[in-house]
Design a protein around this nucleic acid. Structure first.
Length: 920
RNA sequence: GCUCGGGUGGUGGAAUAGGUAGACACGCAGGACUUAAAAUCCUGUGGGCAGCAAUGCCUGUACGGGUUCGAUUCCCGUCCCGAGCACCA
C-alpha cells in the first residue's frame, strides 16, 4: 500500500474538526498549559512557507504537552485592524471589513491544510465588536485610573479626587504629565473644567499636547516603534515631528516594573536586552545651576549621570524646544536664536537623523554659574540636546563626553580634563575609569568613587538630588484613521467625557470614503450622527497595538459577555506558559502587552502580573532566489559557470521551474512569452542557475507557498522539513531542495508498518537492542522538545527508523510507542497508523511513553586510548571501575608498546566513561 | 559609535561540566533492480600524501597567541558577518 498522504491528511483533518478533538475546557483536575502563537495580521498575499514556522513549533509543543497529560490551551485568531486593509479600501472603495474577512478565510484555509491542533472555538478577531468592546473597556479603565508611585500600582482616579479635597497635591506621589502645586482650597475653588484638566494630568489614559511622529502621506501619527530610520514602518513614507493633542497611555509610569519584571521571565537574553535598552534606565542626578540673562536670575536644573565631571562643565546646552530658551535669550542674541529655532523646526525627523553629526548651535547670551568652580559659563542652544529626555538641558563637559567635545571644538569653547594623564587633544575621554584631578574635593578619587561622592555633595549642598531617568515614553494612542477601535469618549463643554460602560461596544460607524475630511479631520469626521446624546464623539481611532495587547486573555474565556476574562477562567489559565513569535515585536507589542496586563493586574482584573512566562523568537525564513544569465542584447542564456566568458545580465527566475539549481528549460520557455524562443548555452547538457538568499517576495520570484508543498509532499513532510531546516530561533533560507529527504523518511515510516503490502505488526517480545533504541529515542525527543531543538529530533527519528529497517523490526511493542513520539511532528501519518493498529480514539489522547533507564544502560565502554593526544586504539572495559583500574588495564595492554616507541610512560590520564591518554 | 549574537565540508546543519569533529539530510559519484524512466535500495563522499589493496600517515572547526595530557568548546587579541539601539547627557 502506498503512502497516500493527500487522502490521509484530508481524512484526519476532517475527523479532528468533526469530533472537536482539540476543543479544550477548564478542567481543574488537570494541570494547565497555555501555548500561544503571535496572531497574524491577515494580509492579502496569504501565507508563505515562512509564516507557519512558529505555528508548527508551537503545535508540536502543544501536542507534546497533551501527551504529557496537560490540559493545553492552544488558540488562534487574527489581528484584524490595521493600515493595509485601509489603504486598500482607499484605493478600491471596498470596505476594509470585507477584504479582512476574505483574507481571514484564505488564512484559515491555508492553516487548516497544515493540520494544527488549535481550538478554533476560541478564535478572536480584534475587529469584531464583541472583542473590541473589551479593548474600549480597558481604555476606559485606564481613563478612570492614575498611577501611585508609593503603592507602585494603578488606582481608581476617584481616590485622587478625595486626596485633592482633603489636602491638594501635598504629599502626593503619582505619575503625571507635569508637576502641579495646589492646596485643598485651590482645588475646591476650581471650575469643573479646571478640575478635569487637573485630573487629565494624572489619568493613565489621557489626552495631551505632545511632540508626535506625523506621517503626512498616511495622514496619521505613529508610535516610536512604528517609525524606522525616519520612515513609516508600513509603506516607507517620510515622518516628521509635530506638536499635537493626542490620546496617550502613561506607559512611562510602569518603566521600573517593566524593567524589573524581565528578570523572572524565560525570554532570550537578546530580547530582554532590547527591552532594557528601550526602557533605558539611567541613574544620575538632577542638579540646579543658577542662570542669569543679565537682568534676572533663575534656577535651572539639568540631568547628568556624571556628576563627578561637574568641575569640567564649561558650558550649558538647551534643547531648541526647551521653555528656557525664551527666558535666557538676551536681546542682542534674539535674532540669531530665532533664526536657529526656525531652521531646526523646519527639519523633518529624517533630516535630523541624516545630519545627525552636523554640529549646529547658537549662543543664548546668558550665563550659568558652575556651583563648584564658581565660574560663569555660557548657555548655548543646540539640536543635539533632546527636549523629551531629562530636563531638556545639560551641562557640557567636553573633556569627558564625546558629543560635548565635538560641540566645544566647533564653537571653540574651553576643555578642562579631569582625569590624570588623559589626552583630550583629539577626542574626549568617555571611559568611567582613572583618577580625578582639577576637581576640588574629588581629586585623587577613582571615577567609581567620585560619582557617588559628587552626588552626595550635591545633595548636601541642596543644589539637586539623585534621580533615575527612563528613555521609555508614554505611548501615543490616537490614530487619524478609519480601520481601528473608536474611542468611547465624547466632548462636552471642552471636556473629554467617558461613555458609560453600557454604551460599549461603541461600533465603528459607516463612512462614504476612507479619507480625511476636507477640513482635515480624521475619516470618522465623515460619519453621520457620530455623537453621544448630541455631543460629538472622538474622531481618532486606536492604534494596532490596542487590540493585540490583551488578546491572550480573551482566549481564556472568549464568549464571556460580562468580562474580558471571567474570574474562574483566569484563575485556571492564568498566563501564557509558552509564547512563540517574531522578535520584531520586542519594543512594540511585547512592551504594550506587558504594560496592559500589569494595569489590569493592578486593578484586580487578572491574577498574574506578567503575561508571558516563556517566550521563543522563531527566526525568519528568508527566500532563496534563483538566477539566469542573459547575454546582453540577445535572447540567449548562459549557464552559471560559463557566464563569466560573456557579458550577461542577472535575472530572477521563478524558483518553481528550477530543481536543484537546474533550470527546467521547457517550463522556462513557457514562463514568459519573451522567453519562448530563448537559446541556451549549457554545461554538461544542463542549465545551472545561480542563487542567493534574499527576502521572500513576489518581485524576487522566490515565494514558496505552503499549499503547494502540502499538495506535492503533504503537510507532515512540510511540518517536519520546516523543523529540520535548522534551529528554530535562527534565521535561515527556505530551500525546497532538501525536502525529499524528509519525505523519504515518512515513506520509510509507512513501509515499516507494512509487510508485502499488508499492514501488520507482530506481538513478538522486543530484543534488548530494539528496546535500547526506543528508550534512547524517548529520552532524546523529550529533551529536544523541551529545548526547542526540533531539528535534532527529526534526525533522531531518521536514525531510529533506519535502525528498525536494518533490524527488520516490525514489533508493535516498539513501533507503537514510536508512533506516539512521532505524532506531534507528523500527526496525520501517526493518526492513520494508530487507527490501522486498531487503537482509538485519536493518538493525541495517548500518553507519552515512559522512559526506562534500564534498557539504555551501558555495561562496558570502548575507551579511546591516545598517546600524546593522538588516538591510537580502543580498549573495551567495564563501566564503573576506578581510574587506577583503567590505567592498569591500559598499561598492561600489549598494543600500547608499538605506539610508545620505547619511550617511558610519564603519565596516564584516565577519565572514567570518557577517554584514556598516555603521555610519554 | 554602543550592546548582543555568530563564523564548522559543495549546501543546511550535528557535536561544547574540554575527551574519536563533520551525526542526520541535501547534492554529487558509482552500483543493483528495470526494455526504459520514476520509485526503491546499496556503496563512497572535508582536504592532502603514499599504496594494487585492505590500509596507513599528515592536515583540518575565520585568523594569531595562551591555558591543558588533550581546545570547535575556556581565556586574550585581530578580522569578518548578522541583529538591535543610536545625539538618551
Amino acid at each position: 500500500m502506498e503512502y497516500n498522504f493527500a487522502e490521509i491528511e484530508q481524512r484526519w483533518q476532517r475527523y479532528w474538526a468533526e469530533n472537536k478533538i482539540f476543543k479544550v475546557d477548564t478542567d481543574t483536575s488537570l494541570p494547565k498549559f497555555y501555548v500561544l502563537d503571535m496572531f497574524p495580521y491577515p494580509s492579502g498575499a496569504g501565507l508563505h512557507v515562512g509564516h507557519p514556522l512558529g505555528y508548527i513549533a508551537s503545535d508540536i509543543y502543544s501536542r507534546y504537552k497533551r501527551l504529557k497529560g496537560f490540559n493545553v490551551l492552544h488558540p488562534m485568531g487574527y489581528d484584524a485592524f490595521g493600515l493595509p486593509a485601509e489603504q486598500y479600501a482607499i484605493q478600491t472603495g471596498q470596505h476594509p471589513a470585507l477584504t479582512t474577512q476574505k483574507n481571514i478565510e484564505r488564512y484559515r484555509e491555508q492553516m487548516d491544510k497544515i493540520g494544527f491542533s488549535y481550538d478554533w472555538n476560541r478564535e478572536v478577531r480584534t475587529c469584531n465588536p464583541d472583542y473590541y468592546k473589551w479593548t474600549q473597556w480597558a481604555f476606559l479603565e485606564m481613563f478612570h485610573s492614575y498611577y501611585c508611585y508609593d503603592e507602585q500600582q494603578a488606582r481608581p482616579i476617584s481616590e485622587l479626587e478625595e486626596v485633592f479635597v482633603r489636602q491638594g497635591v501635598g504629599g502626593l506621589n503619582a505619575a503625571c504629565t507635569e508637576k502641579l502645586d495646589f492646596s485643598a482650597a485651590d482645588w475646591k475653588a476650581m471650575t469643573e473644567l479646571e478640575k478635569q484638566e487637573v485630573l487629565m494630568n494624572y489619568r493613565i489614559a489621557y489626552i495631551g499636547e505632545t511632540s508626535v511622529n506625523w506621517c503626512p502621506a498616511l495622514g496619521t501619527v505613529l508610535a516610536n516603534d512604528e517609525v524606522k530610520d525616519g520612515f513609516s514602518e508600513r509603506g516607507g513614507h517620510p515622518v516628521e515631528q509635530r506638536k499635537m493633542k493626542q490620546w496617550q497611555l502613561r506607559v512611562s509610569a510602569y518603566s521600573e516594573r517593566l524593567l524589573h519584571g524581565l528578570e523572572a521571565l524565560q525570554w532570550s537574553d537578546s530580547l530582554k536586552e532590547m527591552q532594557r535598552n528601550w526602557i533605558g534606565r539611567s541613574e544620575g542626578a538632577e542638579m540646579i545651576f543658577k542662570v542669569s540673562n543679565g537682568c534676572e536670575d533663575h534656577d535651572m536644573s539639568i540631568f547628568t549621570t556624571r556628576a563627578d565631571t561637574v568641575f569640567g562643565a564649561t558650558f550649558m546646552v538647551l534643547a531648541p524646544e526647551s521653555e528656557w530658551v525664551e527666558k535666557l535669550t538676551t536681546p542682542p542674541q534674539k535674532e540669531a536664536v530665532e533664526a536657529y529655532l526656525l531652521e531646526a523646526k523646519k527639519k523633518t525627523e529624517r533630516e535630523r537623523m541624516t545630519e545627525a553629526h552636523k554640529i549646529t548651535g547658537v549662543f543664548s547670551g546668558s550665563h550659568a554659574l558652575n556651583p563648584f568652580t564658581k565660574e560663569w559659563i555660557p548657555v548655548w542652544v543646540s539640536e543635539y540636546v533632546l527636549a523629551g529626555y531629562g530636563t531638556g538641558a545639560i551641562m557640557g563637559v567636553p573633556a569627558h563626553d564625546s558629543r560635548d567635545y565635538v560641540f566645544a571644538k566647533h564653537f571653540n569653547l574651553s576643555i578642562v580634563p579631569l582625569i590624570e594623564g588623559c589626552d583630550v587633544s583629539c577626542e574626549s575621554f568617555d571611559a568611567k575609569e582613572g583618577t580625578m584631578c582639577n576637581s576640588g574635593f574629588l581629586n585623587g578619587m577613582s571615577v567609581k568613587e567620585a560619582i557617588p561622592a559628587a552626588m552626595d555633595e550635591v545633595e548636601r549642598l541642596g543644589i539637586g538630588q539623585r534621580k533615575v531617568n527612563y528613555r521609555l515614553r508614554d505611548a501615543i494612542f490616537s490614530r487619524q484613521r478609519y480601520w481601528g477601535e473608536p474611542f468611547p469618549i465624547y466632548y462636552k463643554e471642552g471636556m473629554a467625557m467617558p461613555m458609560p460602560q453600557e454604551a460599549l461596544p461603541l461600533v465603528l460607524p459607516e463612512v462614504d470614503k476612507y479619507l480625511p475630511t476636507e477640513t482635515g479631520e480624521p475619516p470618522l469626521g465623515r460619519a453621520k450622527d457620530w455623537n453621544h446624546q448630541g455631543y460629538p464623539i472622538e474622531k481618532s481611532t486606536m492604534p494596532g497595538f490596542a487590540g493585540s495587547s490583551a488578546y491572550y486573555l480573551r482566549y481564556m474565556d472568549p464568549h464571556n459577555p460580562n468580562a474580558l476574562v471571567g474570574r474562574e477562567a483566569n484563575d485556571y489559565w492564568r498566563d501564557v506558559d509558552l509564547y512563540i513569535g517574531g522578535a520584531e515585536h520586542a519594543t512594540g507589542h511585547l512592551i504594550y502587552s506587558r504594560f496592559w496586563n500589569k494595569f489590569l493586574f493592578d486593578r484586580g482584573y487578572v491574577c498574574e502580573d506578567e503575561p508571558f512566562k516563556q517566550l521563543v523568537n522563531q527566526g525568519m525564513i528568508q527566500g532563496r532566489s534563483n538566477f539566469v544569465y542573459r547575454m546582453t542584447g540577445a535572447n540567449t542564456f548562459v549557464s552559471l559557470n560559463l557566464k563569466d566568458k560573456y557579458e550577461t545580465t542577472e535575472l530572477h527566475v521563478d524558483v518553481h521551474i528550477v530543481h536543484n539549481d537546474r533550470l527546467d528549460i521547457e517550463a522556462f520557455k513557457a514562463w514568459r512569452p519573451e522567453f519562448a524562443t530563448a537559446e541556451f548555452i549549457l554545461e554538461d547538457g544542463e542549465y545551472i542557475c545561480g542563487w542567493a538568499v534574499e527576502k521572500m517576495s513576489k518581485s524576487m520570484h522566490n515565494v514558496v507557498n505552503p499549499d503547494k508543498i502540502c499538495a506535492d509532499y503533504g503537510a507532515d513532510t512540510l511540518r517536519m522539513y520546516e523543523m529540520f531546516l535548522g534551529p528554530l530561533v535562527q534565521a535561515k533560507p527556505w530551500d525546497t531542495n532538501g525536502i525529499d529527504g524528509v519525505h523519504r523518511f515518512l515513506k520509510k515510516v509507512w513501509r515499516l508498518f507494512f509487510v508485502q503490502e499488508q499492514f501488520g505488526l507482530s506481538q513478538e517480545t522486543p530484543s534488548a537492542q530494539e528496546l535500547k533504541a526506543l528508550h534512547k529515542l524517548i529520552k532524546k525527543i523529550e529533551s529536544d522538545i523541551e529545548q526547542f531543538s526540533f531539528n535534532t529530533s527529526v534526525s533522531a527519528f531518521m536514525i531510529f527508523v533506519n535502525e528498525m529497517m536494518d533490524l527488520k523490526c516490525r514489533k508493535q511493542a516498539i513501533l507503537e510507542p514510536f508512533l506516539i513520539l512521532l505524532s506531534p511532528f507528523a500527526p496525520h501519518i501517526s493518526e492513520e497508523l494508530w487507527h490501522l493498529l486498531g487503537r482509538t480514539p485519536s493518538i493525541s489522547r495517548a500518553s507519552y511513553p515512559v522512559y526506562n533507564e534500564e534498557y539504555t544502560v551501558e555495561r562496558t565502554f570502548e575507551y579511546p586510548v591516545s598517546v600524546n593526544g593522538k588516538l591510537r586504539f580502543k580498549k573495551e572495559l567495564p563501566l564503573g571501575i576506578s581510574q587506577e583500574e583503567i590505567q592498569q588495564a591500559v598499561l598492561a595492554d600489549s598494543q600500547l608498546e608499538k605506539y610508545l616507541g620505547g619511550a617511558l610512560v610519564k603519565k596516564v590520564v584516565a577519565v572514567p566513561g570518557r577517554i584514556v591518554n598516555v603521555v610519554c
